[in-house]
Design a binder for these strands. Sequence first.
DNA 1: CCTCTTCTTGACCCGAAAGTACAAAACCCT
DNA 2: AGGGTTTTGTACTTTCGGGTCAAGAAGAGG
Lengths: 193, 193
Amino acid sequence: MGRPKQFDPETAVEQAMQVFWRKGYGDTTPQDLVDALGIGKGSLYHAFGSKHGLFELSLRHYRDTQAKALTDLLAEGEGTVKERLRKGLELLVEMDLADPDRRGCLAVNTATGLPRADETASGLVRGMFARTEDAFRALVEEGKRSGEIAPDRDAAAVGSLLLNTVVGLRVTARVADGPDGMRRTIQAVLDLL
Amino acid sequence: MGRPKQFDPETAVEQAMQVFWRKGYGDTTPQDLVDALGIGKGSLYHAFGSKHGLFELSLRHYRDTQAKALTDLLAEGEGTVKERLRKGLELLVEMDLADPDRRGCLAVNTATGLPRADETASGLVRGMFARTEDAFRALVEEGKRSGEIAPDRDAAAVGSLLLNTVVGLRVTARVADGPDGMRRTIQAVLDLL
DNA sequence: CCTCTTCTTGACCCGAAAGTACAAAACCCT
DNA sequence: AGGGTTTTGTACTTTCGGGTCAAGAAGAGG
């Protein structure tokens, strides 16, 4: 009962996420959000409570779409483990560098941009990192079973390394002036495996 | 001629760097700087022109102290190459996690926090990354010469990987709830070498 | 000692960030 | 149609960010 919303909250969160991703939390103003969502400021605060509340929803949405896309890609891809790994990493780099805004990864940007007190946001980031690390670990284990990866490798350790590699790459994507360094990084990690 | 400065500009830049490092560029206010440097706002703007100008000096100072400390450690350490590598990475992680503010690395934080237009800052970050990468590459080459590292390794590629690893670790240091994941990452990278 | 220059201080300024208030509007139910 | 409920739009408020300015203090040179 009562007047129905004139906008779709999920769409709004998606749009908000795009703004936060492009500009960062601190540099995003309520006016930016109002412009992007196409609703009044009153509606915005009525529906989402605060800029930070909307940011939290945006982070969750990022986790359920972007971060999930990577773990799915790793889990469901076709081809050998190493091929999937190479495809996944190369796709990531290409997308990051093709982005005219060079947004990188919202989770990574949040990790380094957080005010020290934001336990909610850092918890969400930790969660995304943990899931991705786990997807890598699972992939490594599959590689060990299939014989592609030496059986004496510690899958958990290599998973950590691969997550860490992705995080590093997505920082670099924000400032790199070309793909060479990042390609070399991928090359090295695949060679060493 | 003229009235002499009542403060040492170099000390002031050092103090400003600490503030930017702890709070980030965007969250640092002129008032924060005034408080930290112990001078009036007028003096601050008279001496440094703008918040951004002071930030630029702070970044350069970071490069010449913190970033240099790492490259020096890699270049001048004692012991085998792998021992130096291990020491360097472990020291980094310990320092990052021991820091109550979890500031991570100013260059990394700047990379992910810059507004898209700040070419000056991103150039400085690129420069620091390049120097560090080169220090790693040189270390790998030394390892190849000494026989510690297989001669068919591409030193430049491994250098990229090591820089990337450090960048990733310093992001993780901002949100990690313990040293385990980071230690696993170091373990994996050393094992693979 | 007078002047010229360079620093220092604190008051002041303007715009904007984040959020609030509240009346009007749009719906549901009976 | 009327009452209860939720949403909307706009105006408003408060605080603060980033910066400027005028007036004076502290030196150097003549």
